[in-house]
Nucleic acid binder design. Structure first.
Lengths: 213, 213
DNA sequence: TAAGTATAAATTGTTAACAATTTGTTGAAG
DNA sequence: CTTCAACAAATTGTTAACAATTTATACTTA
């Protein structure tokens, strides 16, 4: 990971961490001055961080009221899955073969890392995988939109991937998808992707039901 | 139009106007102090306006370098069309009949206004139409993403809708699409939408070719 | 002239104080 | 007990000055 000296981004990343770890709860107000104090800065950079996070879909800013941790309901999260999948599906139509070797190697590495990753790491690798696959098409617009959808999904992947079995199943799906892409079977890849999205949604619903109890 | 007293939004809207009217050219640097002076404010609110516009895809902010009017190439714009269409397509699957009467009336009104609108107004109405259609599904995530794609498209619609004939053709397409939605023929609507996207892209390419000369 | 370097100017980043607004609290009136 | 108004506290919005950085300019040297 590269170190980013841009202060607002550092603060933004800390806020995301706090959201993931439930230091900040869903719907909670994020008070500028508190983060300013905890970083020993003024409110300016915190403000900018909040704008960045609004862009990433983690924060909802209401003028003169404040910034709140964005609440997603079940439907919202399924929609995020769905839109992300749809973008990825479209990007598959754009692939140019042969694929670039370095990009292939990167994704190979992600798949390989997935095999032994714990839940937290897996959630991040999962996001990386989908981002890299989308990036294969070289499409800037898709990449841009994707990166705006990804962050909320990472935070919820932890919930979805509750059991080792669901991680295992997700892993197998990724391996299958990647194989289909590598050998250029686009239509197969699209079908696998569609299945992957469906089972992702299903796992998500199951996890939510479980958490209710 | 409602008056918004939130200063950064007012400034943001002025910057968008300047971009549309080519007062600010594509790729040009937007200097904070100039807008601060022209509004008689400090740089703070201008800064926030630029954050907002970054979120809307109109501005690209590069840390410590500045804010630039975002450049879109032909491929980017086609992709924006495509993603917007894809979102709209997905939302069509979510429609619940009977449609809400007030929403139907609003869209009827837009279609009606389109008949006599000039190019500038038409571009805005066009965006409104697609947004309202998407909103019929009540899907917050789709609406959210859509509103992040829309602004750059408005600015370019003026280019696409150069001739009265292309406006006329676009108008007929919208009428057809809306009719199909109203009578609940979703699959027909999807087909019409797909055509609409394709012809939109085609008109865009033609416009670009023309402008080259 | 060309390339590189020191300097100056312009611009963005950050801060701390103040203004405006919203939110919370208390107490009086019904 | 509830409702409402006045006040107090907390928080966001804005400002102006200063710091850090980038960009432009002029100058030196080969």
């Amino acid at each position: 990971m590269e170190v980013d000296k841009h202060l607002p981004k550092i603060i933004a990343s800390q806020i995301v961490t706090d959201i993931i770890n439930n230091v900040l709860e869903s719907g909670e107000k994020v008070i500028e001055e508190r983060y300013a104090n905890s970083f020993g800065t003024s409110r300016g950079p915190v403000r900018e961080a909040l704008y960045i996070l609004e862009n990433e879909g983690m924060i909802e800013r209401i003028p003169k009221r404040g910034s709140f941790v964005k609440k997603y309901n079940r439907q919202d999260l399924c929609d995020l899955f769905e839109v992300r999948g749809s973008l990825e599906n479209m990007s598959l139509s754009r692939l140019k073969y042969p694929l670039q070797e370095d990009q292939v190697n990167e994704i190979d590495q992600i798949i390989s890392d997935m095999a032994t990753a714990n839940m937290e790491v897996y959630a991040q690798l999962n996001n990386d995988f989908h981002y890299k696959v989308l990036s294969l098409s070289g499409n800037e617009v898709y990449k841009n939109i994707f990166s705006r959808l990804g962050t909320p999904l990472i935070t919820l992947q932890k919930l979805v991937l509750e059991t080792p079995e669901s991680v295992k199943q997700s892993y197998e799906e990724h391996k299958m998808l990647w194989k289909a892409i590598k050998v250029g079977k686009i239509n197969l890849a699209k079908a696998v992707l569609e299945d992957h999205i469906e089972s992702g949604k299903r796992r998500f619903y199951e996890a939510v039901e479980k958490n209710k109890k």
